[in-house]
Simulated scan of single mutants.
Amino acid sequence: MGFLQGPALLPVTFPEPPQLDVVPSCKWLLSVYSQDILARLEDIKAHITSTYGSILKMDSTKKITKKLAGTAKRTALWLTSVGNEHGQILISVLTAQEGAGLDRMASDLVKRYEKAGVDPPVALYVDCGCCAEAAETTKLQARFSGWPQLLVRLDIWHFMQRLALGCTTNAHQL
């Protein structure tokens, strides 16, 4: 109103507003979004597989597999993941038994580091199977044989649990 009542040389007229466009349907929006994702799929894969770390942590859990539903229900018992020092997951595998399928996961992770030309990690923290007598090689050291300098150690959480229980063995001496 203030604009209309102000001094002007010519009378002010406004055009009618344009007609509103029809809003696309939900199916159309999902279709366009899916096509956009598929067009960038190689970039997304490259971004996901370009995550590395110098300190790794490997852990297995049953909690995730209990949440599987539908046809996937009861197809796996363990989820084993390897993460880096920033908490990013580098690789995961669903298995029917603990330990099964980990050889392939480990060899694929070693190959991924080699193909990228990234320095191998210096330490791997795990919840079990980390320690052996000086002359022995653990299963994990054998799995990650592509990284001969890799130190396999018990992670701090499981060390605290064992310490609290008073666990003193040759492998985990206090």
Results as ranks from 00 to 15, higher is better:
residue 30 L to A: 15
residue 38 L to W: 07
residue 45 K to S: 12
residue 77 L to H: 06
residue 97 Q to R: 11
residue 79 L to S: 00
residue 66 K to I: 01
residue 32 V to S: 10
residue 72 A to K: 08
residue 109 L to E: 08
residue 127 D to T: 12
residue 111 K to F: 09
residue 98 E to A: 11
residue 44 I to K: 06
residue 125 Y to N: 05
residue 98 E to R: 05
residue 129 G to H: 05
residue 38 L to K: 07
residue 86 H to I: 01
residue 81 S to E: 04
residue 28 W to V: 14
residue 108 D to T: 07
residue 86 H to P: 01
residue 128 C to R: 13
residue 109 L to D: 08
residue 79 L to K: 00
residue 99 G to A: 07
residue 54 S to I: 14
residue 67 K to Q: 12
residue 72 A to Q: 05
residue 126 V to N: 04
residue 105 M to N: 05
residue 88 Q to T: 06
residue 61 T to A: 03
residue 128 C to N: 10
residue 33 Y to G: 09
residue 120 P to I: 02
residue 31 S to R: 14
residue 75 T to V: 04
residue 136 E to A: 08
residue 109 L to Q: 09
residue 39 A to D: 08
residue 129 G to N: 06
residue 80 T to R: 00
residue 130 C to S: 15
residue 97 Q to G: 04
residue 66 K to M: 05
residue 112 R to I: 04
residue 97 Q to D: 13
residue 131 C to Y: 07
residue 29 L to K: 15
residue 87 G to V: 03
residue 49 T to S: 15
residue 116 A to M: 08
residue 128 C to P: 00
residue 47 H to L: 14
residue 113 Y to P: 01
residue 101 G to K: 07
residue 74 R to P: 00
residue 132 A to F: 00
residue 47 H to F: 12
residue 57 K to W: 13
residue 67 K to W: 02
residue 123 A to P: 02
residue 128 C to D: 09
residue 70 G to K: 01
residue 83 G to N: 05
residue 56 L to C: 05
residue 41 L to V: 11
residue 135 A to T: 13
residue 50 S to Q: 14
residue 37 I to G: 06
residue 65 T to Q: 04
residue 66 K to R: 14
residue 43 D to C: 09
residue 133 E to V: 00
residue 79 L to C: 09
residue 44 I to S: 04
residue 117 G to E: 07
residue 99 G to V: 04
residue 117 G to D: 08
residue 42 E to F: 02
residue 79 L to Y: 04
residue 70 G to M: 02
residue 69 A to T: 14
residue 86 H to T: 06
residue 63 K to W: 03
residue 124 L to Y: 03
residue 77 L to M: 05
residue 62 K to C: 13
residue 57 K to N: 13
residue 129 G to P: 06
residue 100 A to P: 00
residue 40 R to G: 07
residue 102 L to N: 10
residue 127 D to I: 05
residue 72 A to Y: 04
residue 33 Y to H: 10
residue 73 K to F: 00
residue 112 R to F: 02
